[in-house]
Write a protein that binds this DNA or RNA. Structure first.
Lengths: 197, 197
DNA sequence: GAACTTGTGGGACACTCGTTCCAGTAGTTG
DNA sequence: CAACTACTGGAACGAGTGTCCCACAAGTTC
């Protein structure tokens, strides 16, 4: 075991983490070799030593971050599919956190989305959490159409939560999430049948 | 009437349009005084003459673009609320266009979203189409919760459409849109009741 | 016509950027 | 110890940046 390589790996990781912090704070446009190096407390050349180009650094950071998030989410989803009733509350709470406490993190995630729209090599990383959730839900025989609508709505609620004057609270989100997960009960309550739109 | 001012106003508008083209092509990060000037075919100093700073230029472009889109959309929505049946097809077609032919435009719109998440002065512009649609739907007494879910899902379908390997087609989108607009009929068809997730 | 306002556009300054070069250090292997 | 490898970090180059300055042209008003 080479001690040099071990320390190098640690520094590489520190650079990734610093990059994510910069993205959360200033957005992708705030990322430069120098800004990341400053954030990580390393000389400018370190960032070029470990990542051939700025693009490499960005891609490495965003895929790593997406992986982290996907792992983070998968447990939640299993719980939701298993026990929808308690799941609604947990999903709602998580959404509120994502547009509140972890706002910066969520913005970073959507910067990845947008970057992926222009760079094919990032697409699979951006879709990571979607794929993971879809996979987790497959054995439960969920209605695929409703499920796709549900996932789309999650993304929309987050994006719209980011541009609200203040982050939506749990009680703001709860009705919508509950409707999305158990639409039938909501519709029964209305005795309507269609949403009219 | 001052001929100088009129020509100036036209040039200002040309700069806005050039900026939007640059954003559609290269993203917000591709916008600089020089790149916009080149695109518009005007000298570099024109862009600083009409817009005090690059930030002003960006904000002016994005609010103008958002207004244009909102106007564009409002007609569609009225039709949808009036006649849901034919509306499904039109909405679906429009969505397919937005992730297909008008992909660049849609990406520009979501760059605005993300920028707005970091700059309060852009928030109202970013929410413009949401507000407009909500307003248009109000007199029809639409169930607000389902409607919010619907709008969120639209955003999500677009974003997810942007990061798909190939843009979703009309037939990909139709079932989901149809479900979102008339969930009861979809659920009846399943004879299930809940989506199970 | 002269005095003015409005728009034009070339040039330049100070700065940040990505990236490369390269001499030096610390750790590993023989 | 010597040869080698992995990493460090200062310095610099060329390119692009935002923004300001200023001489000038064109249109308007008196």
């Amino acid at each position: 075991m080479d001690g040099r390589r071990a320390r190098g790996e640690r520094r590489r990781q520190a650079i990734l983490e610093a990059t994510l912090r910069v993205i959360e704070r200033d957005g992708v446009s705030g990322v430069s070799h120098r800004s990341v190096a400053r954030e990580a407390g390393v000389p400018t050349t370190s960032t070029t030593y470990y990542f051939a180009s700025l693009d490499d650094l960005l891609i490495a950071t965003l895929t790593w971050s997406a992986d982290k998030l996907a792992d983070d989410i998968s447990g939640l989803i299993v719980k939701l599919v298993d026990a929808p009733d308690s799941g609604v509350g947990e999903i709602t709470q998580r959404l509120a956190d994502l547009v509140g406490v972890h706002r910066g993190r969520t913005m970073a995630e959507y910067e990845l989305y947008l970057l992926a729209a222009r760079r094919p090599e990032l697409k699979s990383a951006a879709r990571r959490w979607l794929d993971l959730i879809t996979e987790a839900a497959r054995p439960y025989n969920t209605d695929p159409v409703a499920f796709r609508g549900f996932l789309a709505a999650l993304d929309g609620l987050l994006m719209q939560g980011l541009i609200a004057d203040e982050p939506p609270s749990v009680s703001d989100l709860e009705p919508v999430v509950s409707y999305l997960i158990r639409p039938q009960e909501h519709l029964d309550r209305l005795r309507g049948g269609t949403m009219g739109a």
